[in-house]
Simulated assay, not measured.
Amino acid sequence: MHPARTPRIAVVGAGLGGLTCARVLQRHGHPVTVLEREASADTRPQGGSLDMHADTGQAALRSAGLLDRFHDLARPEGDEWRVLDPATGALVARHGPTPDGGRPEIDRGQLRGLLLDSLAEGTVRWGRAVRAVTPLPDGSCRLLLGDGSTEDFDLVVGADGAWSRVRPALSSAVPRYTGVTFLETGFDDCDTRHPGLARLVGNGSLLVKGAGRSLVAQRNSNGHIRAYLALRAPEDWHRTGGVDLADRQAVRDRLATLLDDWAESLRDLLRTSDHGFVNRPLHVLPAPHGWEHVPGVTLLGDAAHLMPPVGLGANLAMLDGADLAHALVSGAGIGEAVRAYERTMLPRSAEAATGSAQGLDHLVPAAAG
């Protein structure tokens, strides 16, 4: 790279981690391009509610200069869990919220919108899929885009999630199925249309834990509740069982069988949802996952350390993005900055992956026998 030229930095993926990285870079006067394969910010729903931890997600938002705006949107009362007995449906435990509101909840879509709105116009180039990344002899990287064109950058940051197209430039690792699948559904205008469920969930989340199957329901903004039935099952459980996932009633009938020893009030929850069911098999990368440094390319978030969704992933992705951006604006060259970031991020993610795997086992205990 010519020393007088401004470094060309591309972030692949407009998720929370990539956008945090871009925001911190711009805040320090460094140009950056974000390439996103989706056509617009509204192409698809962004998922459920996230709890932002003080030492990770909130720290990243502070680095981005967005912490106050985050608190304007967040729901500190959402940091509450109610645990019910599966056989009776009775409340057996209640946790939180913490007195200091330490882990406030926010809808993923709201958080992404906050980050997008903070970026300079034109930073995100929508509809620009990346097919492959090739490191070049001069230490830069070439992106092959979905339309067959190529672009070269001095640094490519893979923030493109579980099935990253950037990762193969660094690692041959591929995600593996955990043995747990989440079936997601939703309820609208709950305080009016589903008052019983609204009372059960309260301001935060509901947990019903059984052997090989657990139910999580979480309150989002605007009276919406998302519910996830977590199952220990083969990845192709629906195909081998002859269940058409597009047939809402067929899925409900199958779930009624799986939960036949649960309280009728809990089984009713899945009979009355306003939405169909989305099948989400959970995958993880090997832990620890690492790579030998390759000039001109690095990873953050799920592209670097895909782990079960038990409350750490989004927080770590945002911290990754902030840490990488700070390293890049520190005055060190790109190579040394990326090495410094990877020396911090990789051990941290290995520890978090171990904790997340244990968290998934706690959330969905294996069935006896």
Rank of each mutant, 00 (worst) to 15 (best):
A217E: 08
A211H: 07
R252D: 05
L197M: 05
P195I: 08
G223C: 11
R232W: 07
A246L: 10
P234W: 10
G186T: 07
F187G: 10
T272A: 12
V208H: 00
G212A: 08
S214A: 12
L270A: 05
R226S: 12
H238Y: 11
Q249I: 14
H238K: 03
S205Y: 04
N220W: 01
T272I: 15
L266Q: 08
P234H: 04
V278W: 02
S265A: 15
W262E: 08
A198T: 03
E235A: 14
G196Q: 01
L255K: 06
R232Q: 13
E264F: 00
A246N: 13
P234M: 11
G223H: 12
T272S: 15
G204S: 06
H224S: 06
T192Q: 06
L270N: 04
R193M: 04
G202C: 13
R213I: 11
A230K: 01
N220T: 01
V201F: 03
N203W: 07
S221F: 05
L207V: 15
L258M: 11
L266R: 07
L259Q: 03
G204R: 03
V216K: 03
G186Q: 03
R213W: 00
K209I: 13
G210M: 02
G241Q: 09
A233C: 14
V201L: 09
A217F: 00
T240G: 02
D247C: 09
D274T: 08
R219M: 06
C190T: 15
V251H: 09
G196K: 01
A256P: 02
L231W: 00
R248N: 14
V208D: 01
